[in-house]
């Protein structure tokens, strides 16, 4: 089992600009699902880089304190050794592919070839990883020609093939379209049930909040809030540093306006609807609500074209 602990950890990059992370004291239980959020440049990525040992082995700077993964001191193990425990998924879906494979299976098998496993095992584990992220059918595709969402899932399959039990995902969906982001989040949400310890950094937590055991807010290199999503989102002032999900905002307003007085804040849209249902029903009983006139809306936009297409044809050269 892999427990992660930070003891009084501070880090400053050699390029300066002060401490990127300061005095972080933290224990992450094996098998838990941790969300990390906070403003840009707050130290979230630096935090992530500490777990697989990229700090201090790849980045230059001063590390104080101790980071331990599964009892192993990170500063004393190599990135390659840690990779068998900790897998990391980066933000950019294309840059983290090896750039040296002609098919998806080669890409996923790359790490296993380096480990010197039997060929049968390599194929088995590669195919299993692809299946786990739901892209088995891409096995013979060229990795350079995938969409962002597909590419990110190939990268995730390549990480899973190394059989880590901790997954660190640094803004895994920020460069994906909504459809691709949804696909990745769905897989990530299922990872906890498969026994992984998951640490996911995201500015948009709506989709993941219901699955989180714990939510950390990092601000200016320090852990500003630490608790269950319910606790963190109901802390006064938290919305200044965190993008609070819509359902939570609605829940908070309902409580402030005293429409609802009990129970936990709704973390999902479904839970928010349940809370709103009695209000809507009572409003419907009370009479008609004011609505915008949809016809007037349409007429205005039709008479006032900002962008108009009329019978447009275009064929790219050489197609």
């Amino acid at each position: 089992m892999t427990r992660i602990s930070f003891e009084n950890v501070s880090w400053e990059y050699r390029t300066g600009e002060g401490l990127a992370i300061s005095n972080v004291d933290l224990d992450i239980e094996s098998g838990s699902f941790i969300g990390i959020t906070g403003p840009s440049d707050a130290g979230k990525s630096t935090f992530c880089r500490l777990v697989p040992g990229y700090i201090p082995h790849y980045f230059d700077g001063d590390l104080e304190g101790s980071v331990r993964v599964g009892g192993r001191e990170v500063s004393e193990a190599s990135i390659g050794e840690l990779a068998e425990r900790v897998g990391m998924l980066f933000e950019n879906p294309f840059d983290q592919l090896t750039g040296a494979s002609t098919t998806v299976i080669e890409e996923v098998a790359f790490g296993l070839e380096n480990l010197g496993l039997e060929r049968e095992t390599i194929v088995e584990r590669s195919v299993e990883s692809l299946r786990r992220v739901g892209i088995e059918e891409l096995i013979d595709r060229n990795p350079q020609r995938l969409s962002g969402g597909q590419s990110q899932r190939v990268a995730l399959a390549s990480v899973l093939a190394m059989a880590p039990d901790v997954l660190v995902l640094d803004e895994p969906t920020s460069q994906l379209d909504p459809h691709g982001a949804e696909a990745v989040f769905e897989i990530v949400a299922g990872m906890k049930d498969q026994g992984y310890t998951v640490i996911v950094v995201s500015q948009r937590l709506d989709r993941l909040t219901p699955h989180l055991d714990r939510l950390l807010v990092i601000d200016e290199g320090e852990i500003a809030h630490d608790g269950t999503p319910q606790e963190v989102f109901t802390t006064p002032g938290v919305e200044e540093v965190v993008d609070v999900p819509q359902s939570v905002r609605i829940g908070r307003r309902l409580r402030e306006e005293e429409y609802v007085d009990s129970g936990g804040i709704p973390l999902t849209v479904g839970a928010a609807i349940e809370e709103l249902r009695p209000q809507i029903e009572s409003a419907a009983d009370g009479g008609s609500a004011a609505t915008a006139d949809p016809v007037a809306e349409v007429e205005r936009s039709a008479n006032d074209p900002r962008v108009a297409f009329e019978n447009v044809h275009h064929v790219y050269e050489g197609v």
Binding site: I79, G80, F90, T98
Partner: peptide, 13 residues
Amino acid sequence: TRALALESRGFTR
């Protein structure tokens, strides 16, 4: 990013 990804997949092992 690529260097880190390669390193994590045992490239220099």
